[in-house]
Structure formats: C-alpha cells, structure tokens
C-alpha cells in the first residue's frame, strides 16, 4: 500500500510518540466492505510538544486518537510510545501502558458516569491502580481538583449533572491528570463548550501542560482553536495527512490546496473580511470507496491526471513543513516518483 510518506518523522529517540503506517478499518455491517477510517498515516510527537490534528467530520481524527490508546486496536501499523510498541503489548501490559497516555473526550457530560460522585470519578484511576494509601489518594485528588478550579468539597457531594459543561470538562481533565501521565490526547475537548468557557479550558490546558510537563495531541475541527494551542498542526482529509508543519507557518502559508480551502471557508469575526466566495464545491466522499490517487482530487481546483492516478507522498517544502500534493501552492511540483513509474 502506498503510504503517505514518512519524510517528516524526526530522529528516533527524540520523539515521545512515533506512529508509523497506521491503518484502521471498520467493517460495514456484513457486506464485506470496509470503512477506510485511517489509511497509512505516520507522525511523531516530541516531548513537551503539542500536535494539533484538524480536518472535517469523518476524516478519521478521533479514530487516530483512539488507535493510539488501542481502542480498538488498529488494523496495522506501529505505535511506539516511550520506546514501547503499543500494538505489540498483551492485554495486561497495555492496561499498564494506558496510565501513561490519557484521553479527554468531546462531550464533557457523557464522559462522566452520571451516577457517581465527581470526586469518586476522579479518584477511580488511583483506586484501579492502588496508588498509595486512601489518605494519599484523597490528597492527590483534592490537589488536582483545586488545580483545575473545582471545589473538592463540592465534588465530594455532587453528581456530574450538577456541574456546567465547562466544569465537567475540567473534571475530565482532572481525572486524566491524577495518574500523572506523560501524554494527553484531547479529542475535541472544547467543541461542545460556549466560546467564553472554551477560552477558560484552552488557557487551563496550556497552564497544566507547563505545570505537568505534558505532551499533547489536540484534535479539533476548529482551525483557530487548533492554531491557538498547537506547536505543530497536521491537516487530515479522508483518512490521510495532507500537510503538516509548525502552526504559524502552516496557517500563514498553506501549501496544500485543501488546507487553503479550509482556511478560506472559516467565517472570520470581521465584517470587512471578504465573503461570498465559496472556497470549494461538494462534500467529502465516503471513506468506504475513497477516490484513487490523491483523495482530494474530485474537489481540488488544481487536480490533474497525475492526481487521479498517483497518490502524493509527504515531502518537505520548507524546513519542518511537509505536504502531500503533486501541485502544491508553493514549493514546486512533486518529483515523479519511482514507485508509480
């Protein structure tokens, strides 16, 4: 299978997480067809870095995040976290490895058990892993609750629905922090929140990242939110990476036509901005039967015959900025690949 390239991976050892050729497929009922949710993506995340993943609904962002946690196990590919290939671990070892990578979900309310006291929810990871005595556990929980701005006293007495959405997201964050993880995968953690509350949670994540020395993967469909929090951003389309680069570079000078389209489609809160140009026609095709060659070709204004035939590979067009496109907006045509000849 033609991967989407690995030119952008950094030397082994520097990265805390290194994902190579990740493939995740889901069967479609019993039709024998499959959903190509994620098709051969590779990426790495350095210690202390925040990688943002953006893309439209159904492009495979959540699937990527969950595959790292082995929920469910990916169809193929390797996921090396801190020197350990998670895909090769048995059930017990994986259970232990999960304490080092945590996940926060989109819906703050449904990710908390509605019938358990909030403090117990945050305590649960510690009691599963029997970390310390009861007193030590209680102290750790109270500390982390304070840190995310939830009163431990109230947490001990209340159920999740007695807190607001933003507070529930703080509680989720507290739960993911108690085990002192190395990395947190945030799957659209602010998408369900109001703008004012969204800003609170984004700032909180930024502060906690510094305080705990965390590495983050931040998944969202809102490009502005992703830009705000990420060091590097990867743009996904139909299960593939289109472009990856330092966030300021990528937003200032997108090279992939799809990234450009995404950026142009965002309505900006500025009445003087030009509107009325529709950046792209059509909608993403089904991942059950993705187009051949470049997956964006049916909607791409620059598409050529080559795009329909040959899949573009990620290559570097400026330091740290990679694009998978035959005819990028800058950086020159892709060299004719040996494989396709």
């Amino acid at each position: 299978m033609a991967g989407t390239g690995k030119a952008h991976l950094r030397p082994e050892g520097e990265a805390l997480l290194r994902v190579e050729d990740l493939v995740v497929e889901f069967p479609v009922g019993r039709t024998g067809l499959k959903v190509n949710a994620v098709t051969g993506i590779s990426f790495d995340v350095l210690r202390g870095e925040t990688l943002g993943i953006v893309g439209e609904s159904g492009c495979g962002k959540s699937t990527t995040g969950r595959a790292i946690m082995q929920l469910p196990r990916p169809t193929s590919g390797s996921i090396v976290f801190d020197g350990q290939d998670l895909t090769k671990l048995d059930k017990e070892a994986m259970r232990a490895a999960r304490t080092k990578v945590q996940m926060i979900f989109q819906d703050p309310i449904s990710s908390l058990n509605p019938r358990r006291k909030v403090r117990d929810i945050v305590m649960e990871p510690l009691s599963i892993w029997k970390r310390g005595t009861k007193q030590e556990q209680a102290a750790a929980v109270d500390k982390v609750l304070e840190e995310v701005g939830i009163d431990p006293q109230r947490a001990a007495e209340s159920l999740p629905h007695q807190f607001s959405g933003g507070q529930c997201q703080r509680i989720s964050i507290a739960r993911s922090l108690v085990l002192d993880p190395r990395m947190i995968i945030c799957d659209e953690p602010v998408s369900a929140l109001d703008v004012s509350v969204q800003a609170q949670v984004l700032n909180l994540l930024e502060d906690l990242k510094k305080a705990y020395g965390l590495t983050l993967i931040f998944i969202a469909h809102d490009l502005a939110v992703v830009k705000n929090i990420s060091d590097r951003v990867a743009v996904m389309y139909l299960g593939k990476f289109c472009e990856i680069g330092a966030s300021d570079d990528l937003y200032a000078r997108p090279a992939h036509p799809y990234t450009k389209v995404l950026l142009d489609s965002i309505p900006v809160p500025d009445p003087n901005a030009t509107v009325g140009k529709v950046a792209v026609e059509g909608e993403p095709p089904s991942p059950v039967s993705p187009p051949s060659g470049c997956r964006f070709n049916p909607r791409c204004p620059n598409a050529s015959d080559r795009c329909r035939r040959e899949e573009p590979i990620l290559r570097e067009i400026e330091p740290g900025h990679f694009v998978a496109c035959h005819h990028p907006l800058f950086g020159g045509e892709a060299p004719v690949s040996v494989r396709s000849a």
């Binding site: 058990n113 990871p125 892993w129």
Partner: peptide, 8 residues
C-alpha cells in the same frame, strides 16, 4: 471508554 482507557 474513559474508564477503559484508565485501565479498568
């Protein structure tokens, strides 16, 4: 899922 990913 959240419980599973903390190793329950």
């Amino acid at each position: 899922t959240a419980a599973r990913q903390i190793g329950a």
